[in-house]
């Protein structure tokens, strides 16, 4: 039913203005954000535990974890994609989570505005840098002892 946007809520007119809701943007943003938290959560369980198991438990376990190990993983498109998905989902999930926390705890619109500004800026920087590193990673730093760099 589309006609509902016309609904004007009854108001007694004698209450503190802070309780009056300004009719917000219509649309499903908050619903989709809520849904995204649950769906990304399911994927993150697989991605994060897969990540922890391959990095920390399989093979030499934590002792085998070094520059060469990471270089080896990122030579494989499968792990590139895995880490990319983990980066994007965790960042968007975490950012939306912190956005909710800001909404829940900051009580002034100005405070909210600045906190969210800083949050979104940090998210964009981290996602951009992370994506860049995953795709442009070059294991052959000067003096690299790795086999493939010789």
């Amino acid at each position: 039913m589309a006609a509902t946007t016309e609904f004007v809520p009854p108001r007694s007119g004698r209450i503190d203005a802070k309780y009056n809701r300004v009719p917000g943007r219509k649309g499903n943003f908050e619903m989709l954000a809520w849904l995204f938290m649950r769906i990304s959560g399911v994927f993150l369980v697989v991605l994060i535990f897969g990540h922890l198991i391959t990095n920390l438990l399989v093979g030499d376990g934590i002792n085998g974890l070094d520059f060469g190990f990471v270089a080896g993983k990122w030579a494989d498109p499968f792990w590139q994609f895995w880490d990319l998905a983990m980066l994007w989902l965790a960042m968007l999930h975490g950012t939306n989570g912190v956005r909710t926390i800001i909404n829940d705890y900051a009580d002034k619109d100005r405070t909210r505005f600045w906190l969210k500004g800083i949050l979104y800026f940090a998210t964009i920087v981290i996602i951009t840098l992370g994506t860049l590193v995953i795709f442009t990673f070059d294991p052959c730093i000067p003096g690299s002892p790795l086999e493939i760099c010789k």
């Binding site: 039913m1 946007t5 609904f7 809520w34």
Partner: peptide, 18 residues
Amino acid sequence: GDMRLEILNDKEGVWRCR
């Protein structure tokens, strides 16, 4: 019911429940 669901799909509606 649809109208009420629309009203509660607001940014201050059900999705604010934690």
